[in-house]
Amino acid sequence: MKNISIVVILLLLSNIISAQSLNWNSIEQNNSSQVYTNIGYDFGATVQLGYAYKLNFNKPIVLMTDFSIPMGAELNDYKFRIGAQRNIIDRGSFKTSVEYIGVVRRYETNLVRQISIAQMMSITNGWYKDGWHVGIEVGYDSSILSHLKHTEEMQRVYADIQDAWFKNTSAYWYYGLQTSKKIGQRLELNMELGKTNARAQDVDALLPYYFNFGAVVFLN
């Protein structure tokens, strides 16, 4: 019951997030805290820094939070995520985990400032060994609520444009491969490569792919 309560609380708290490539064997054998960093393409060239913490129950839950920004001169766009992963099927080296992440993302140009509250849900099936893993990830990212505030420049285009809250402004599936390789006792390198598809008949992203190369450092 305690485990269920924690998961429910996490689900309530985390509105938006994205997956972190985890080797469950490393998680189970290693320490509670880890920091991770990624660089790659995720709707733009991005860098990410995160922290994860393992809660030891009969099946561990990994809580995680991270922050990423796209490359560029101005720090007005970002993505903040908080969530949890849990291993739900454990059959030797084959494991299945689920992830739920809440996301707050921001986007600003000379035309608009948009803040979105979103959620990401994913399931990963993988083959996990002590020093490495490979997995297949399928997930869904949806913006629940977004606030749009337009600049004077945009108001010159359309004087009656509305600054307001909008619901369900975006949604897309993402699916891809992930792998990791442990280097020594405290370092693990990982990589993700995948594709995105906008929901239903929505038009796909200009570059509907994601790629991340990352490192995890186990702290204690």
């Binding site: 393409y41 709707f43 733009g44 060239a45 796209p70 490359m71 560029g72 001169a73 101005e74 766009d77 993302r105 986007y107 140009t109 948009q114 979105s116 990212d141 913006s143 977004s146 402004t169 975006s170 949604a171 897309y172 906008a198 929901r199 239903a200 008949q201 929505d202 038009v203 992203a205 200009l206 570059l207």
Partner: peptide, 25 residues
């Protein structure tokens, strides 16, 4: 130019807005 603000503004938007109707697009 992948590392410039203008390029990332262009592609970063894709995670904020998706749609199939003319108003949204």
């Amino acid at each position: 130019k992948l590392l410039e603000e203008g390029t990332n503004d262009f592609v970063y938007l894709d995670q904020f807005i998706t749609g199939s109707d003319h108003n949204t697009l």
